[in-house]
Amino acid sequence: MSPAIQTERLCKQFGTVEALREASLSVAEAELFGLIGADGAGKTTFLRILATLLVPDSGKATMLGLDTVAGYREIRTRIGYMPGRFSLYQDLSVEENLNFFATVFGATVEENYDLIRDIYVQLEPFRTRRAGQLSGGMKQKLALCCALVHRPELLLLDEPTTGVDAVSRQEFWQMLQRLKAQGITILVSTPYMDEATLCDRVAFMQEGRMLAIDTPQGITKLFTRSLFAVQARDRHKLIRALRSYEHARSAYAFGSSVHCTDARNAADPSELAAWLRSRGFDDVTVERIEPGIEDTFMALMEEQPAQSEAGKGDNG
């Protein structure tokens, strides 16, 4: 089966900013694929090239087997794209926006209603409200409906859950799972690491490069050092102490504990516990843990030498 999305060494430069540096990726049909990375990593540029809105400086991309430059007209009718910034008409109502986008693609809301019903029922009470008057979570749902209303084979979603609360984020991901079950390929970017675990595969992006591409489980295997979860009452003091520990590679707050990476591969948690106790942390507990996606991403980020800290713009 040919991949739904394929890119080969995509490069794109804006002035002196290298937004994409040989970004290569392949997404299978009906795959739910996550593009994980911080602001400025190049996610938006990557998605815009795939959406045929930008032309790469070099490299090649195909969508549904069609070249994004030569085949842009056909691609546009067969994919749905939800940009990061709210892009619907603020002074049209919910209903008018939906009808408008359906019409543009030569479709009707009625014929594709089954695809959007789950999402649209939540919007229905506000169908005459202007889109500009909706809250963040509702705007996202409307934007998704508008991207789906022509029944695309492939969806590109640029940070659909940024600024959305935890409950709405959970609902949004449940919708994506249902769309995937109907055979739609989905490429979604997000800055939330916990969402990575909900994808079939993820790519970590940083400074225009794909740092790693794998399943969520596979990604965490890239983390090879010892990782400890450390807990004590005064967390801030604990973090500072851990950062002064000679074997500590990093120490970061993680929920209710602090994750400390030991630079050695097989370090002993009791050694660290004893060291902390000698420094007055009487109530400390140290436990060896398996790394999560966020631990792995942070470790990968720190291993990459910063290329151009100050020169790197926010190309959002």
Binding site: A38, D39, G163, V164, P191, H236, I239, Y252, M301
Partner: peptide, 30 residues
């Protein structure tokens, strides 16, 4: 919002520092 996990935690280091110096911090987050 939107920053990478390392930068997010460095930001919290600054929040802790401010709180240690006596500033009250009122913060919203998702």
């Amino acid at each position: 919002g939107g920053v990478d996990p390392v930068t997010r935690r460095r930001f919290w280091d600054m929040i802790y520092q401010a709180a240690d110096s006596g500033v009250t911090v009122f913060v919203t987050t998702h």
